[in-house]
Design a protein around this nucleic acid. Sequence first.
RNA 1: UGGGGUGUAGCCAAGCGGUAAGGCAAUGGACUCUGACUCCAUCAUCCCUAGGUUCGAAUCCUAGCACCCCAGCCA
Length: 557
Amino acid sequence: MSDAPEKETVTPTNFLRQIVEADLTSGKHTTIITRFPPEPNGYLHIGHAKSICLNFGLARDFNGRCHLRFDDTNPAKEDVEFTESIKESVHWLGFDWGEHLYYASNYFEQLYQWAEHLITTGKAYVDDLTAEEIRQHRGTLTEPGTQSPYRNRSAEENLDLFRRMRSGEFADGAKVLRARIDMASPNINLRDPVLYRILHASHPHTGDAWCIYPMYDFAHGQSDAIEGITHSICTLEFEDHRPLYEWLLNNLPVPHQPRQYEFSRLNLSYTVMSKRKLMQLVQDRDVRGWDDPRMPTLVGLRRRGYTPESIRTFCERIGVGRSDSWIDMSILEESVREDLNERAPRAMAVLSPLKLVIENYPAGEDEEFIVANHPQNAEMGTRAVPFSRELWIERDDFMEEPVKGFKRLSPGQEVRLRAAYIIHCTECIKDPAGNVVEVRCTYDPETKSGLPGAERKVKGVIHWVSAPHALDAEIRLYDRLFALPNPSGDDWKQQINPDSVEVLTGCKLEPSLKAAAAEKRFQFERNGYFCVDMKDSTPASPVFNRTVTLRDSWTKR
RNA sequence: UGGGGUGUAGCCAAGCGGUAAGGCAAUGGACUCUGACUCCAUCAUCCCUAGGUUCGAAUCCUAGCACCCCAGCCA
């Protein structure tokens, strides 16, 4: 009956969606097939999430499919450790490749045959030049390259040599197979690119079956062709490779002609995204591992408390384009807040405890308040929160001499204890050094939360935890990993934010948090969103990670 | 000084010759038993610059300028 317009979730368009739409309506394709092709040499990060959401999202929205393909052509750098983690992260993010799990290494035999085909047709040759010599012959950006003296070997000789390369006759680096294209091409990728190199290394997936391995360029397009990929989407730095991608497809009897499209990779402020740098942070112990909650890896974000939904929302919001861009961290942060605000049950936790004593509350007595788990969603239920004469409150919620605009507790002032009573501060007690160690106050029994007539307005509301009932916990406060928006240069590690993690012990939690399961997320009222650490937390000594703070329009001033 | 790209608000990003969507950030206000949430309002006479075509240009043309990528037997 409502006239309210449907709240439709519009997926923002982008040039790739338009291409896919056009290809489908024109009949160029009846279904689309995309792929996400990680190299198993590291953990997935938020930049990969952009690609995953793009590729799997396109397939999902246009009733196609998306393959997960490991681009495992370099056994020197790859490891099974990474393939399991990658699969888990893709699933965690919410995508499923179904039966379509592939490895480029599954195509090694076919690729080899195609290499022989190239040799036979005079379009590839075995080169004996060293890596250094090949580099010198390549020319420069402004000068053409020069031909290798081995460039004009006969097809028969090349075939013989290539077969002997395969059989293991030569040492690493002794020979390579190169495409014969154009040493004078202005596109350096076309100056007789290396197709195969000798690598006497055991492969995580093919074992010792091979001692020659195809280069990326010789594996990727053909793998796309074998799988029937219609739209092969990669990042901008591969744009220069597209002529080579197409040259190979045009010169080989492939079963299908995929098309490559490029988009700009994600840059996120205050963090780093390159695998090399992430690896270095882990190896140098600047962080506690790939899943350190400060890392932009998916395992790190997960441990930090980010939800898969929030990361998908983030990827939708930032869009897909071709211009270099730096996404502000606040977009990622706002994406989790939005998700967690709706889904995280509320609880009270005091991070930096200050004792508060209610002088007119009978000693030794206590009571329970039934508190809603979510202020806007009654379906999330209620919980019992104990109250007593001695409470913990946040140190920051008391100021002996309040600054202008301070709405919390100070001598002579009153404030509401969330879900409980209004209290009036009488005095504070200090240690010999002058530090406030205890706050004294009185309460008004008539103002008990929920009581008729208890809605008297007070300027502030603070959270609290009953001291005798409190649970002790460790809480880890995380902040951005780097102090500068774009950590770069040789001294990029000098730019690590020294306060990127602050470990608080002796924090006080309300007792309902006792049985919280690993990864369970909460909003600690007025403090932020927190989750139970999936590795270090135990029922006896709980550990929480701060995912993100609440927006704060007060301390900002 | 070769080749390939990109330039729309502080950060992203729609726009596809008919008179600048949206999000994040920011600002002001309302509401509030979370200084949260929510809500309302403000935020590009202008689209890298300069010319040109056109009744009309961010969109087309020309010439510049700035920035990014490419010289791994990495991907």
